[in-house]
Amino acid sequence: MSYTGPDFDPPKPRRSRRTPLLVALAALVSGGLLGWAVYAAMGAPGDGGTTAGAPAAPSGSTSASARDDGKKATPSASGPAAASPSPSGSPDAASGPLKGRVVVIDPGHNPGNFEHTAAINRPVDIGTNSKECDTTGTSTNSGYAEARFTLDVAHRLRDLLQQQGATVKLTQDGDRPYGPCVDERARIGNTAHADAVVSIHADGAAAGNRGFHVILPASVHAGAADTRPIVGPSRELGERIAGSFVRVTGSAPSNYIGDGTGLVTRRDLGGLNLSTVPKVFIECGNMRDSKDAALLTSGAWRQKAAQGISEGIVSFLRG
């Protein structure tokens, strides 16, 4: 974000007689003020994003599961709001290195899920078995909801990828009352014939558990699910995102899952089981740990998270 400061108009020279010294001094002052006006108009660098109070949500308990498509929790208070949706990429983006590539970003959960619990609790087929349509997600102890975090990072990631020339689609943009369900999220990526899909989340594990992890699809062949063709490319996508995430954010891989690799393979997530294109999930940190929460609620850190994910996707797509 750039900041526009006060505008200054260079003082108009008087028509009275001046000594050479006074004329030179006036010119120096005018030049200095003009330089400040140019600097102010260009703007000083920001922190990569702002945080503000989000609409308050009903209070409730926050039991969380790190083993689910979505962590069940109810936001209890206001927290930093998601960044506003960004405009489409600039005309020059169409000629970027990712021209012709399609990326689908899946912001986990939906800010409105907690108001539609009956709808999101209905079971859907995920290939291996049935599972809830979606869940509310978790939140920090101060009430910053995972659904708002995921939308904020998704908007930042979309901007970065569009600048590289990619066509970017979101599975939801806070523009529907709830969901979509996990099976529909998979279909959106499949229908778009995406070259890569990334589902963005933040975990809700116990305090003291820190770090990020990337979830990869296991080889599943059951019912409507057949991940065998995407296991290999999805692993490559996940490995590249994990490497970039460490480098850009400085965050360490999870200390509680993945054996320090930052990579976890699962067969119980409908969003992965039903995908026919390369797809991974990333849990960017643990919202229930105070140190991780301090990062997740920082606009500057969320920009780094988006940059790390973006660089991993670009690396994967460029080979």
Score class of each variant (00 low, 15 high):
1 M>N: 13
5 G>A: 07
7 D>C: 14
8 F>A: 11
8 F>D: 07
11 P>A: 09
13 P>G: 08
14 R>L: 15
14 R>H: 14
15 R>W: 00
18 R>K: 15
19 T>H: 07
25 L>D: 10
31 G>V: 03
46 G>R: 01
52 A>L: 15
53 G>F: 12
54 A>M: 07
57 A>N: 08
62 T>F: 09
63 S>I: 15
69 D>S: 08
71 K>V: 12
71 K>L: 13
73 A>F: 13
74 T>C: 11
75 P>R: 10
76 S>Y: 09
76 S>F: 11
76 S>A: 15
78 S>K: 08
81 A>W: 00
83 A>Q: 11
85 P>S: 04
95 S>Q: 06
96 G>Q: 11
101 R>S: 08
102 V>M: 13
103 V>H: 05
103 V>R: 02
111 P>Q: 14
114 F>V: 14
115 E>S: 15
121 N>A: 05
121 N>V: 13
126 I>Q: 01
127 G>I: 10
127 G>L: 07
129 N>T: 12
130 S>G: 10
132 E>Q: 13
132 E>W: 04
135 T>E: 14
140 T>I: 03
140 T>V: 07
141 N>P: 00
142 S>K: 12
147 A>N: 03
149 F>D: 05
153 V>E: 01
154 A>T: 02
156 R>Q: 09
157 L>A: 06
162 Q>F: 09
163 Q>Y: 00
163 Q>N: 13
164 Q>C: 02
167 T>V: 13
169 K>N: 10
169 K>Y: 10
169 K>F: 09
170 L>D: 05
172 Q>H: 10
172 Q>A: 13
173 D>S: 15
180 P>Q: 14
181 C>N: 06
185 R>P: 02
188 I>V: 07
192 A>F: 09
194 A>S: 08
196 A>V: 10
197 V>A: 03
198 V>P: 01
203 D>M: 03
203 D>C: 04
205 A>D: 12
207 A>V: 02
209 N>G: 09
209 N>D: 08
211 G>Q: 02
214 V>E: 03
220 V>F: 01
225 A>Q: 04
227 T>W: 03
227 T>M: 05
228 R>L: 05
231 V>W: 01
232 G>T: 12
234 S>L: 05
236 E>I: 06
238 G>E: 06
239 E>A: 06
239 E>K: 04
241 I>C: 08
243 G>P: 04
243 G>K: 06
244 S>A: 14
250 G>F: 04
255 N>H: 12
255 N>R: 12
258 G>A: 01
265 T>W: 01
268 D>E: 06
272 L>H: 01
272 L>T: 03
274 L>G: 02
274 L>C: 03
276 T>I: 07
277 V>C: 12
278 P>T: 06
281 F>D: 15
287 M>I: 10
287 M>C: 13
289 D>H: 01
294 A>F: 08
299 G>A: 04
303 Q>A: 15
307 Q>M: 12
307 Q>V: 10
308 G>C: 04
309 I>R: 04
316 F>K: 02
316 F>R: 01
317 L>Y: 05
317 L>F: 03
